[in-house]
């Protein structure tokens, strides 16, 4: 069986489960469904949306930079109504920091739609988009023989990533420390999600 193609979202108000498809993000959708949609008409926010670290990101341009790079992929979680609930860019040519000589997948960008953020919205709509795409990245790493190792630099909700099993490394970037999900925790995550036998 190949990589995950669907993810489960939870509707925050009704607690109903909604199925979203995971698909490649193309430039037109990035423009129409993210750049022109995500930051418009956000009602009842707890904070100013302009204060979100990604409010200036242009996903169409980001997606364009991936097009001609053989080791990059941009994906999105899309609900039946056509809306993109989360998006991610990752690359598969990274090195592990925690285990010298081993490879890892690096999550270049990951964001949930602003309407789904409980830190921003009084009444977020769905939860599970970002974490579902993160599991996809772990599965991608496993499927290439990297044992699920995953690197990223969180720019918000650091405690959430630590709760997921990510460990801060000594590598410091302009935006903070690089975190890595070690292989043991990655395999536990894939087992917990039912992708691998325990």
């Amino acid at each position: 069986m190949g990589l995950p193609t669907k993810l489960l979202l939870t509707h925050c108000q009704t607690q109903e489960t909604v199925l979203a498809t995971i698909q490649r993000l193309d430039r037109e959708e990035a423009k129409d469904r993210i750049d022109q949609r995500w930051w418009r008409d956000l009602a009842d926010t707890k904070t100013d949306p302009q204060d979100e670290p990604d409010s200036h990101w242009q996903w169409r341009a980001i997606d364009s930079t991936c097009q001609n790079k053989p080791y990059f992929r941009a994906v999105a979680a899309k609900t039946q109504d056509g809306q993109i609930q989360a998006a991610m860019v990752y690359r598969v040519d990274a090195k592990s920091v925690l285990e010298r000589g081993e490879k890892a997948v690096y999550v270049d960008r990951l964001a949930t739609a602003p309407r789904n953020r409980d830190t921003l919205m009084e009444a977020p709509i769905y939860r599970g988009g970002g974490s579902g795409l993160l599991v996809l990245a772990v599965a991608q790493s496993y499927s290439l023989g990297f044992q699920g190792r995953l690197n990223l630099v969180p720019i918000a909700n650091l405690a959430w990533y630590e709760n997921c099993g990510f460990v801060p490394t000594e590598v410091e970037t302009n935006d903070g420390f690089l975190y890595e999900l070690p292989k043991g925790r990655a395999l536990e995550l894939l087992q917990r999600k039912g992708l691998l036998d325990a």
Partner: peptide
């Protein structure tokens, strides 16, 4: 949220590319 940070070059291991 994750993003917008270039991976340090010493952590990139890109195989010889193909066009």
């Amino acid at each position: 949220m994750v993003g917008g940070v270039d991976l340090p070059s010493h952590l990139i291991d890109t195989p010889p590319g193909d066009d």
